[in-house]
């Protein structure tokens, strides 16, 4: 007799480690890319803006699964001549794509910081760079937290698409269970509910961060 699917729940749950490696890596890389891209788009020279706009357009307009295959089979091995494993490729692709989205979140946040703040900082003798890092960014990063919460929910659900490269995250493991037990409804429903729980749990964590760093009166004045 085939084993029943719920005996494999611990096995599926172990996939959460891989899922959160993808999510954490993708978000962190996306952050490292998104913040400078947004600053370049707002404060950079015209040629740089054009390059960054093209980057954002490409990664926002192409489906994730196409990007994963393009990088895993094309860009890394053929174009750059390096062989990366599925997990590393997935994190890099999620990060590049999230960077494009996050840059738009930060651009909105940078734009919502009042123009007068920059002028005041310059009037006090700060350089443009000092004004950005000491005055504008601390405010913009706080304003961007709700947008980042959304990005977490999106990247969590998109991490499931990395099953196509065989990263052994939640969905890949769920499919193994489906194949070995011959039952599909239970395992896939379980996986779906797991993603809902992780979405709401993670959103709660981001809301706590938002409250912790919240400056009363900041949001609403600049916007």
């Amino acid at each position: 007799m085939d084993p029943v699917w719920w005996e494999y729940i611990p096995y599926i749950l172990q996939g959460a480690i891989w899922t959160f490696t993808l999510v954490g890596g993708g978000l962190a890389l996306g952050f490292a890319i998104g913040v400078p891209v947004a600053m370049g788009q707002k404060y950079g020279p015209t040629w740089l803006k054009a390059v960054l706009d093209a980057y954002v357009w490409f990664f926002r307009g192409t489906p994730l699964v196409v990007l994963l295959f393009l990088f895993y089979w094309g860009v890394f091995p053929v174009l750059l001549g390096i062989k990366l494993d599925a997990l590393t490729t997935s994190i890099i692709v999620l990060g590049l794509r999230s960077g494009a989205y996050q840059s738009q979140i930060f651009r909105g946040a940078l734009n919502s910081v009042d123009e007068g703040q920059m002028l005041a900082a310059r009037a006090l003798g700060m350089t443009k760079w000092q004004a950005i890092t000491n005055i504008i960014l601390p405010q913009a990063l706080r304003i961007a937290i709700p947008g980042w919460t959304n990005e977490y929910a999106i990247i969590l659900k998109d991490s499931a698409i990395c099953f196509t490269l065989g990263v052994i995250e939640i969905l890949t493991r769920t499919r193994y269970v489906v194949i070995s037990t011959g039952e599909a409804l239970g395992p896939f429903l379980f996986a779906g509910i797991l993603y809902i729980i992780f979405t709401y749990g993670g959103t709660k964590v981001f809301n706590i961060i938002y409250e912790k760093y919240h400056i009363p009166g900041l949001v609403g004045k600049g916007v």
């Binding site: 659900k157 998109d158 499931a160 698409i161 099953f163 969905l171 896939f188 996986a191 779906g192 509910i193 993603y195 809902i196 979405t199 709401y200």
Partner: peptide, 8 residues
């Protein structure tokens, strides 16, 4: 909204 589209 909570289910990833692939899971659906």
């Amino acid at each position: 909204r909570g289910f990833p589209l692939v899971v659906t």
